[in-house]
């Protein structure tokens, strides 16, 4: 029996009428991978500064997330505590080891905080976003000890802190940021684009929130636009 991999690739080449070693085809492919042309990028997220943040907030709210803004990192714990109190949720919170979160004055609130990945028993979690995309009000979170991926999905209520300066206009700009930080062709284990809280329309096509992931998504935007 021949190798499945060889067979599948040979089948593709036979149908396309190619050999696979044509220099022109290889050059076309290498060029595309190296340059990653952007294609059509919507105008919607292209405003600069405060306008971009405004579009991000409006789109996130359209996706049924709630949003508050605070002036600086020191203001985050109080805003989180107020959110949990207003929603009648317990004053407890799980988070990862993100130094930006660790540097916030949680001690000034009555919140009981725990650190590390979630095993499914946490009601509330807070993560720090890698960035955001204004176009669709999308949060971008990356895996790692700083912000474990389980925190994005297991708790009932997910709070995400994002720096206003790290909101970009479109997905393409986000990929540029990632490539700049990690290098070309390199990705974290998981990049989560999150746009609103979990939902399902599988019963009679009626949208209900809180399917498997968080029932509520609350975003705290910190500081001014970059």
């Amino acid at each position: 029996m021949t190798d499945a991999r060889e067979d599948v690739l040979a089948g593709i080449r036979r149908s396309l009428g190619v050999r696979g070693d044509e220099r022109t085809r290889r050059t076309i492919v290498e060029d595309r991978l190296a340059t990653a042309p952007a294609g059509v990028v919507p105008q919607r997220g292209q405003g600069s500064g405060e306008e971009r943040v405004r579009v991000f907030v409006a789109q996130a709210e359209r996706a049924l997330a709630s949003v508050t803004r605070v002036a600086d990192h020191a203001g985050v714990p109080a805003a989180v505590a107020a959110y949990l109190r207003d929603a009648n949720l317990p004053a407890e919170l799980r988070m990862g080891e993100d130094p930006r979160l660790a540097g916030m004055p949680w001690g000034e609130t009555a919140l009981a905080t725990r650190t590390g990945a979630s095993d499914g028993s946490d009601l509330n979690a807070v993560s720090h976003a890698f960035g955001g995309v204004a176009e669709t009000g999308t949060l971008v979170l990356v895996s790692g000890a700083d912000n474990p991926s389980t925190l994005n999905f297991l708790p009932d209520n997910h709070i995400v802190v994002i720096d206003a300066a790290e909101i970009v206009g479109d997905y393409e700009a986000m990929w540029d940021v990632l490539r700049e930080r990690l290098g070309r062709g390199v990705m974290p284990r998981t990049v989560n684009y999150v746009t609103g809280p979990s939902r399902s329309g599988d019963i009679e096509q009626t949208i209900l929130l809180g399917a498997h992931g968080p029932r509520r998504l609350h975003i705290v935007v910190v500081g001014e636009a970059g």
Binding site: A63, E135, T136, S143, R189, V191, V194, T195, G213
Partner: peptide, 15 residues
């Protein structure tokens, strides 16, 4: 929807 709630990019196993 403009984008589904969760768009997840997965690359390899746990680091």
């Amino acid at each position: 929807q403009d984008l589904s709630v969760y768009t997840t990019f997965s690359t390899g196993p746990r680091r």
